[in-house]
Write a protein that binds this DNA or RNA. Structure first.
Ligand code: FES
Ligand code: FES
Lengths: 143, 143
DNA sequence: TTATAAAAAGATAAAAAAATCTTTATATAT
DNA sequence: ATATATAAAGATTTTTTTATCTTTTTATAA
């Protein structure tokens, strides 16, 4: 469903949303050990997010990664799309070139309503919405 | 969501369900070209299904692969589990070791209802149910 | 029997995804 | 200016998934 890369990226982003701001950055290697992801790997993923304006970074002493308020209000799906591409979640389960109700594969009716509902949630929930749940104890960030 | 292997296997199984029986088998290589999957690859996948009693085969002249009535009434999910394993569809989206409502990750509430609904469909629909849709023109098997 | 047709099993190769290592660029502080 | 800390970029390695090739087993038929 989600690649390893997306999982790592989301864990990192949630951590950043809770613990960082432009005045309070975190080093890739520190974040890595806190969320239990290989340091070089998370650095790469964050660089990709920064390139796509979904996170921020600063080089040099006292540099590091952080999210600004805009980033925290990005829909969750944008982070997934940034890392996995749009096709991963939208393509036909059986490999039909175009997934739509005009030419549905045998699994379409079975699966598409749920996928649509899921995509809808991912489009309408932003990182901050997830953070609120975490802060309320309704969910917890994987180590 | 589904691996390439599962996609191929499901395409093959649906084809077998429509066109084969113990009296009317098909060669791996013929099936392969009909559903557009590499011949050696589909052979491997079918062998796995046969080993797990989800399909049948016979060696030698006039041999080949086919589904019996029991196979055709097998829930769709069993074919996916046979090829991808159970974890692929059941594990936590963010990599928590156990996905459940007692210790939910930040995506759990967002995604789990849809996953449960999907799994439920896959558990309650059998191959024959999908075949009925195909025969009624409600869906079509990817080439 | 012998030849042949087919799946089964096992070994190998190619491609993609995951992970790491090395070098470069940039900002800060001394 | 210089040294240092850090992200960025790029190259490389490892692992997993996808795909193919080769050999063995089994069934059929002449
Ligand atoms: S056409 Fe296959 S999932 Fe939509
Ligand atoms: S705990 Fe993460 S999806 Fe259920």
């Amino acid at each position: 469903m989600l690649s390893n890369s997306s999982k790592y990226a989301l864990k990192a982003v949630l951590y950043l949303a809770i613990h960082t701001s432009s005045e309070n950055k975190i080093l890739a290697r520190d974040l890595a050990s806190l969320i239990n992801v290989p340091p070089a790997y998370i650095a790469k993923l964050l660089q990709e997010l920064v390139r796509k304006n979904l996170a921020h970074s600063e080089k040099g002493p006292h540099g590091g990664f952080y999210l600004d308020e805009l980033n925290k209000n990005e829909p969750v799906i944008n982070f997934i799309y940034a890392i996995d591409g749009e096709d991963k979640l939208n393509s036909c389960l059986l490999g039909l070139s175009h997934c739509n109700h005009l030419n549905p594969c045998p699994l379409h009716h079975l699966a598409n309503p749920m996928r649509d509902a899921l995509l809808n949630n991912l489009k309408h929930k932003c990182i901050n919405d997830l953070v609120i749940d975490i802060k309320n104890g309704k969910s917890s960030l994987p180590l």
